[in-house]
Computed example of a mutant assay.
Amino acid sequence: MEKITKSTLIGELLRIDGDGFTPILLEIGMHCLGCPSSQMESIEEACIVHNTNVDALVDKLNAHLASMKA
């Protein structure tokens, strides 16, 4: 994956690096990561539900992704 976007699915994130992305998502209150419907939810949709700034979260997730490549 080149870059995480607002349309990236939560399930896709967890398949890439569940151990790394899970704490970031839990930190903002996304505690339903094991829910089947969350697997098909985009980051933007999840942020709307959790009243979270999607741009800030995408930046944080991309920083983690970049650190994985380093």
Results as ranks from 00 to 15, higher is better:
G34K: 08
L33V: 08
N51V: 12
V49W: 01
S37C: 04
I24K: 06
A63H: 00
S38W: 06
S67L: 02
R15A: 14
L26C: 05
T5M: 11
Q39S: 14
D59V: 07
L14M: 14
S7A: 13
H50Q: 10
D17G: 07
T22F: 01
G18A: 09
G11T: 11
L33C: 02
G34A: 07
H64Y: 15
E2M: 12
M1I: 05
E45C: 05
E2K: 15
L13W: 04
P36R: 01
V54P: 01
D17R: 09
G18Y: 07
V58P: 02
C47M: 09
M1A: 15
D59L: 11
S38R: 00
V49S: 11
D59E: 15
A66S: 12
K60P: 06
G29R: 09
L61G: 04
E44D: 13
E45Q: 14
V49A: 14
S38F: 10
D59R: 12
H64F: 14
I10H: 01
C35K: 04
S42C: 12
A63D: 09
C47W: 03
A66G: 02
I24F: 03
A70M: 13
P23R: 09
V49L: 14
N51D: 13
S38T: 15
G20P: 05
M30P: 05
A70T: 11
S7L: 13
A63Q: 11
K3W: 00
T22A: 11
M68G: 02
A46H: 00
I16C: 04
E27G: 03
A63W: 06
L26A: 00
N53F: 08
I10F: 04
A66E: 13
N53C: 11
P23C: 12
P23D: 02
V58N: 02
I43E: 02
A56Y: 04
P23V: 12
E27S: 15
G29Q: 04
G29F: 05
S38L: 12
P23H: 08
L33F: 02
D55H: 11
N62V: 04
A70H: 13
M30A: 09
A56C: 00
I4M: 08
A56K: 15
C32P: 00
T22M: 10
I16N: 07
M40C: 08
L9Y: 09
I24N: 00
I24Q: 01
T8Y: 01
D55I: 08
V58Q: 09
K69N: 13
L13S: 12
K69L: 14
D59G: 00
T8C: 07
E2W: 07
A66V: 08
T22W: 03
M1V: 14
P36H: 08
I24D: 06
L25D: 04
D55V: 06
